[in-house]
């Protein structure tokens, strides 16, 4: 369809991908017990996804709020931060997103091509424990959005759910001293450019 809102299409595709990616990161990095995860098929490959309703709801709510930012190309990075029991970051999975300013006409085949590219990201995440060191026990996570403009300008966009408020993150809780950079995957398509890398704290 000519009048298809490409921003929406990209946001739908990316948020669906990010949901799978967040679940998989939490599984692979053992943030939660493996017993809450179940094998499901996404992008034509098996992935581990949580079946815990509270956790699933949290991830869904987070991504629902991020979606308008992605739609307007206001989200520069979506970061899954794994923090230790003192809330200091040990790993940051950084999804750096870039959308072309003028999106060309989409088609099913184009989206199918993007899904193939996204599958490669999922495969990389599923084996990333091989290139990362073990995290300390008692880790938790949070999802951060780095906006292109000052966060306060985007607060209204992200605040789509009344009972799921957002705040400006403190630099201290996102900053990691001299992290080790582990590039995982990058892709370029007509509708999305994205790269994923991990920043890993030297001493965990």
């Amino acid at each position: 369809r000519q009048d298809l809102n490409f921003g929406q299409v990209v946001a739908d595709v990316l948020c669906e991908f990010l949901e799978v990616a967040v679940h998989l990161i939490l599984y692979v990095r053992e943030v939660y017990p493996s017993g809450i995860f179940q094998k499901r098929k996404k992008y034509n490959i098996p992935v581990q996804m949580s079946c815990h309703p509270d956790l699933n709801q949290y991830i869904q709510d987070t991504l629902l709020c991020i979606k308008p930012l992605i739609e307007k190309n206001d989200a520069e990075k979506v970061v899954v931060v794994i923090v230790d029991k003192d809330h200091r970051p040990v790993e940051r999975f950084v999804f750096e997103i870039c959308q072309p300013p003028l999106l060309s006409i989409s088609s099913d085949s184009l989206l199918s091509h993007v899904e193939q590219l996204l599958r490669a990201f999922i495969l990389k995440i599923s084996v990333c424990d091989a290139v990362l060191t073990t995290n300390p026990p008692g880790c938790s996570f949070s999802v951060l959005v780095h906006t292109r403009d000052a966060a306060t300008r985007n607060m209204e966009k992200v605040q789509v759910m009344k009972d799921f408020p957002w705040i400006v993150a403190d630099e201290q809780e996102v900053h990691m001293k001299e992290p080790r950079l582990v590039p995982l995957k990058s892709m370029t398509s007509d509708i999305i450019k994205m790269q994923l890398y991990v920043e890993e704290r030297a001493q965990k």
Binding site: V31, Y32, P33, G35, I36, C51, H52, D54, L55, Y58, I59, D61, T62, C65, E76, G138, C139, S140, F141, S142, V143, L144, V145, H146, T147, R148, D149, A150, A151, T152, N154, M155, V158, F164, P165, W166, I167, V168, A169, D170, E171, Q172, V174, H175
Partner: peptide
């Protein structure tokens, strides 16, 4: 604005590992 002024996060934390463990038998 500094780096921190560009970063947003949910106010609420996700369920903790302990909370998840305490509800495991219900799953």
């Amino acid at each position: 604005a500094g780096g921190g002024a560009h970063i947003l996060k949910p106010l609420m934390s996700p369920p903790s590992r302990e909370e998840i463990l305490s509800t495991l038998p219900e799953l």
